[in-house]
Amino acid sequence: MERIPILKMGDFLLVTIQVDLYDQLAENLESDLINTISKHSSKGVLIDISAVSIIDSFMGRILGNIAVMSKIMDAQTVVVGMQPAVAITLVELGLSLNGVISALNVERGMDLLRSKMHTSDNEEQDYDDDNE
């Protein structure tokens, strides 16, 4: 069965979607990602969709699901490189992709994830201090 590869980069996972997703492929990606996050206790997921020329409500929902599920497992999802035409079309379709954070490219997405990790580290630090 065809699958989209998931690369581990330190605390993060990188997924580059090179083909137009059809349903089975998208559903496999969702479950594979959840399993991989749990296996490596990953802190962030970058999904590069710069090669994706269409996102319909089904695929949009899968992206949203991935973001929600990873959040529950304490990992942040960032979608990078969405084509402008795709973004405009999604809005008109009525899909808001709530909870999905986006960045211009992989590099910026990586920076965003790192900064999010630091803020959450600090929050924990503060919390510990208060309890001492």
């Binding site: 269409i54 996102i55 319909d56 409500s57 084509q83 035409a85 405009i88």
Partner: peptide, 28 residues
């Protein structure tokens, strides 16, 4: 099917944005 519909758009010089709207509608 999506690819075929896109080719029809390309053939008449439709913009990328209108092509994207058309194939997204087709997909739905």
């Amino acid at each position: 099917l999506r690819n075929r519909v896109k080719e029809y758009g390309v053939k008449i010089g439709m913009s990328i944005l209108n092509q994207t709207k058309l194939i997204t509608a087709t997909s739905e």
